[in-house]
């Protein structure tokens, strides 16, 4: 019969139309922004800097090594290294960034900065409702806007943050063990020197 294919197609669309009122599977849309689908955990939008303690400046993990600046494909990260040093989480003296700007109008969310950072200092955020009408600098985020606490990182990427914390704790434990070993060796050496000093040498 001529038109049979068209009728079969229309039966298909009718099935979908009626079905969308009764079955969840056939209703595929949500009324955004009143209704939202839950964000997928791994989703990445723009980077942010992680800080550990309550003070965002002192606890910033970034040591201004500038590797992310070099590897960034569209070159949207701008870092100024400090002249002095401050202690980091393990207690080592490290440089810090006096300026860390990311131009998110250029950033292509490729995540290469996160991949190459040796200090777990920069991670990907998942906030995307960032539209602004300020075209001269509104999308140039500076250090203060980028710094977010570790608790926020745990909130948006729980599995990843747990793994990072485990890695950092392991590193700290190794550094502590090494420092303890060095301290023990130094103490033993000092004791040996004292014992080897001849009696009555210091009159």
């Amino acid at each position: 019969m001529l038109g049979e294919g068209i009728l079969k197609g229309m039966a298909e669309t009718a099935r979908n139309f009626v079905g969308s009122f009764v079955s969840k599977e056939r209703l595929t849309t949500v009324e955004y922004p009143e209704e939202r689908i839950a964000a997928i955990e791994n989703a990445r939008v723009f980077p942010f800097l992680v800080y550990d303690t309550a003070d965002w400046e002192a606890g910033l993990r970034c040591v201004a090594c500038q590797i992310c600046e070099k590897e960034c494909p569209p070159k949207c990260i701008f870092i100024d290294k400090s002249k002095d040093k401050k202690p980091d989480a393990i207690g080592k003296q490290q440089f810090y960034p006096t300026r860390f700007d990311i131009d998110i109008s250029v950033c292509m969310s490729c995540q290469i900065c996160v991949e190459v950072c040796p200090f777990e200092a920069i991670k990907m955020d998942n906030e995307f409702e960032l539209a602004t009408d300020d075209r001269f600098g509104g999308l140039l985020l500076d250090r203060k806007q980028l710094a977010k606490p570790n608790e926020y990182y745990h909130q948006i990427h729980p599995t990843e943050a747990a793994a990072v914390d485990a890695r950092l704790a392991e590193e700290k434990a190794k550094a502590d063990a090494k420092a303890k070993g060095a301290a023990d060796a130094a103490a033993a050496k000092a004791a040996a020197v004292l014992a080897a000093k001849p009696e009555g040498a210091g009159d």
Partner: peptide, 10 residues
């Protein structure tokens, strides 16, 4: 079902 046998498409 929707498309391949559709006379208009063919």
């Amino acid at each position: 079902n929707l498309l391949s046998g559709n006379e208009i498409l063919m």
